[in-house]
Design a protein around this nucleic acid. Structure first.
Length: 420
RNA sequence: GCCCCGGUAGUGUAGCCUGGUACAACACGCGGGCCUGUGGAGCCCGUAACCCGGGUUCAAAUCCCGGCCGGGGCCCCA
């Protein structure tokens, strides 16, 4: 078969054991934190009705959906995140007691151009916290995100927080009432381009120079969340929002994560559906955000017709792994490799193996490597710990020969002891 | 949608700039042997590649064009 057919489809990865165990290790550590917060795991089909996916996605995202028709002509698509499937599930399972706390480690797909840290098929760890509008739920979700990344030792983790309501208020204050989305998009570029260019871009959006300058000043706000109240007051943000941020900061302090969190009004994210606070998670190790989230109180309404407040986040597991480097987990070693010298000893080998497996050990019985020598070589290469030789000589004496592949020592162990 | 880089045995690389000295080198892997109940080491032998198509040239892995495939940047995102 042609070479290129042997590679996985573009933007996708073969998770061979040598790499897959790192993924499993990272994913299970992240999940552990969600579990400790009382969140339960959920999984849904990879395929959704295209109509369902389309309802949330903006123009850009729709073009990234893997679309297909099944044999009956149904229009389907691969999910591009887990928020949509979860929202769909909750719209017909109204019986779940609220707030509902869910987490997932799932594959999602986006037909995008692959790049460093960007894949067409990738894993997301995330949570959805549905049914509560409070600042406490915002703080809980953000703290959970931070703590899960702390548990995998993500270096130099920082969080940038902003709030859609604050930006709305500040934009109104300087009389920018139209074309807010393009303006926010421009502000989101802050840090990537110079402030002067930013101002030029804003002027291009029809903002006059004075207001463009004050917008850039607003977007330049970047202070530790615990110091943000004074800053917001200076900007003239209303009391209710200042109280909100203060409560958020206090809660994050209680969680012990406030030192990582900054108020950064330049971050915007998912303009389509975020309604309140938003955040992005960063490490110095890679340029890309490893995750992000926020509050989307109007999203569930699309599916259920009912207003349901919700907050959540998603973390790109491959990106976390890029930041952590190689070797987060490894293939568990085989404890015993059992080699019957001849066919007549095979039955005994299997019986011994079964006994050891009952004790929770990983055991391989040789299936016919031609020689003891090559079996030994094979066992050493797969990093088995111990090698059991069982032949006529051993059976006559009711023992097995156990060779320790790490220390190179060898001893006879009575069968009675092994089978006990 | 725009831009940049790359494609050599199963894997990872060298060679390409400066065309011929190369039946393309090295490492790992794989097969065999020394050695059919134990050195997992060592040595020996073998295995197998210039992405596809066209062009330039006496001569192309090497230079040029096109295609296919891959990686990365902008944008956006996880």
């Amino acid at each position: 078969m042609e070479d290129w057919l042997l590679q996985p489809p573009r933007g996708m990865n073969d998770w061979t054991p040598d790499k897959y165990y790192s993924l499993i290790t990272v994913a299970s550590r992240l999940s552990k934190v969600a579990e400790s917060f009382g969140y339960s795991a959920i999984e849904t089909p990879a395929l959704e009705h295209f109509e369902v996916l389309k309802a949330k996605a903006g123009e850009d995202v729709i073009n990234e959906i893997y679309y297909l028709k099944d044999k009956a002509g149904r229009e389907l698509g691969l999910r591009f995140d887990m928020t949509v499937p979860v929202a769909r599930v909750l719209s017909y399972r109204r019986d779940f007691p609220r707030p509902i706390r869910l987490y997932y480690v799932s594959k999602v797909w986006r037909y995008d151009e692959p790049q460093f840290g960007r894949f067409r098929e990738f894993y997301q760890f995330g949570v959805e916290h549905v049914g509560s509008p409070t600042v406490q739920s915002d703080a809980e979700v953000l703290a959970l995100a931070v703590k899960s990344l702390e548990l995998v030792n993500l270096p130099q983790l920082t969080v940038k927080v902003s709030d859609r309501r604050i930006m709305d208020q500040l934009l109104s204050k300087i009389n920018i009432n139209t074309a807010r989305e393009p303006v926010l998009r421009v502000l989101d570029k802050r840090g990537k381009v110079t402030d002067d260019e930013l101002i030029k871009l804003l002027i291009k959006e029809g903002i006059d120079k004075a207001r463009a300058e004050s917008l850039v000043a607003i977007a330049s706000t970047r202070v530790p969340i615990v110091d943000s109240v004074r800053e917001l007051r200076e900007l003239g943000v209303g009391d209710n929002l200042i109280n909100y941020v203060e409560s958020l900061a206090n809660a994050l302090t209680d969680y012990g994560v406030a030192n990582r969190v900054y108020l950064d009004l330049s971050i915007v994210r998912g303009l389509d559906y975020y309604t309140g606070f938003v955040f992005e998670l960063y490490t110095d190790k890679i340029k890309l955000a490893v995750g992000g989230g926020g509050r989307y109180d109007e999203l569930l309404k699309v599916y259920s017709g009912e207003d349901v407040p919700a907050v959540g986040f998603a973390i790109g597991i491959e990106r976390v792994m890029l930041a952590l480097g190689e070797g987060q987990g490894s293939i568990p070693p085989v404890d015993y490799y059992i080699y019957p010298m001849e066919g007549s000893c095979y039955g005994m080998a299997v019986r011994i193996a079964e006994k050891l497996r009952e004790g929770g050990l990983r055991v391989i019985v040789d299936v016919g490597k031609p020689s003891l020598r090559s079996a030994l070589e094979y066992a050493a290469r797969i990093k088995a710990r111990k090698f059991i030789i069982i032949g006529r000589r051993e059976i006559e004496r009711s023992v097995v020969r156990v060779r320790d592949l790490e220390t190179w020592s060898e001893e006879d162990i009575p069968l009675s002891k092994i089978l006990k």
